[in-house]
Design a protein around this nucleic acid. Sequence first.
DNA 1: GACTGTGAAGCCATTCACAGCT
DNA 2: AGCTGTGAATGGCTTCACAGTC
Lengths: 209, 209
Amino acid sequence: MKVYKIPEATVMRLSIYSRYLMQMQEKGIETISSGEIAAGVGVGSAQVRKDLAYFGEFGTRGVGYKVSELYGHLIKILGLNKTWNVIIIGAGKLGSALALYRGFNDRGFKVCAILDNNPDIIGKKLTDITIEPLEVMKDRISQHDIKIGIITVPAQAAQEVTDKLVQSGVKAILNFSPEVLRVPAGVTLRHVDLSVNLEVLSFNLSFNN
Amino acid sequence: MKVYKIPEATVMRLSIYSRYLMQMQEKGIETISSGEIAAGVGVGSAQVRKDLAYFGEFGTRGVGYKVSELYGHLIKILGLNKTWNVIIIGAGKLGSALALYRGFNDRGFKVCAILDNNPDIIGKKLTDITIEPLEVMKDRISQHDIKIGIITVPAQAAQEVTDKLVQSGVKAILNFSPEVLRVPAGVTLRHVDLSVNLEVLSFNLSFNN
DNA sequence: GACTGTGAAGCCATTCACAGCT
DNA sequence: AGCTGTGAATGGCTTCACAGTC
């Protein structure tokens, strides 16, 4: 375990392996090989073993991996052996949809607050949380010890919101706005660019015929 | 008929460059250098030039690029010089949010149909389109010559819906469900895995301290 | 002097292939 | 015999550095 930098692609695959293992566990499967995991998630078996090798030796030669054990390791590696409180900024359609997305809860992410600056929707309830104004950002973040923020505001507001989140102590940001954001060192940023994803499809359709 | 293989990362950046150029154009800027584009979107200037070099020589040495001209080239490269009709399968919160997402319309994607199998929401109107049952899939796809499908159904329904889309003539799929999908050769697939994105953040928060 | 276009170098992730265990 | 773990080979994207052009 003498590793500095883990490839991001590896981390994403670990997340996918862990979900696959959860399914296998529910099916009652107790032992699994790298080849079976690979077939299940659409990668090569050497890739699976290499990804795991960054973090230790979890298998038994000649046998494979114990599903529950490997799953436990992956959950710990991914930091999912605790609940992460999350704040969403932007309570439009997309922000509201994410706030109610079950997939987050299932994996240990809890949306504790959703903020917006539109007076027309402030006060509206989404199941158990209420849309609040941006002013409460700092309070909610320290109150719930929030480390992760999700941005679903329009492009022109995104950098300002980002700065406020960072200033309030958030350490990781998932950006759904179509804007390239800057964060200081020490803050992790990921960009889910919806239009870019469709445009890659458009490119492939246009270019390959 | 692939000529050269274009890295996917390049295509994604081209999409981002094009959006940045649109902004610069609106600001009235007529000429721009690779270094300015690079600074604007957070990459290196050599990267910008290499990305463009896959498709031709668009600049003038010693000067830079004409914004409107380069923008036009990128739009054509990305296949955005036409309108793409899109179908969404799954009219839950996320599917509805995507159906109403302005960013798609702004870039030439038109959501023509949104389907679901839940009788409680079939018939509901989202602005100008109405939620319809899955049975109309094939009709809508041929009627609007739809090549792109977006999947926002639960995991357990995703592969079945994918197969139906492919069978109905869709050639590109954007998958928002947390499920690894299989498509035949000739169909492009992209996966936007919301949980994976949060889990990468969780990993970074856990691992780097 | 400034900036593009590009071969070469560097770097990083993936795949191969096999030694090592069970 | 079967499967993991891993050094070596491969392949591919990014960065460098500079010749070419305005």
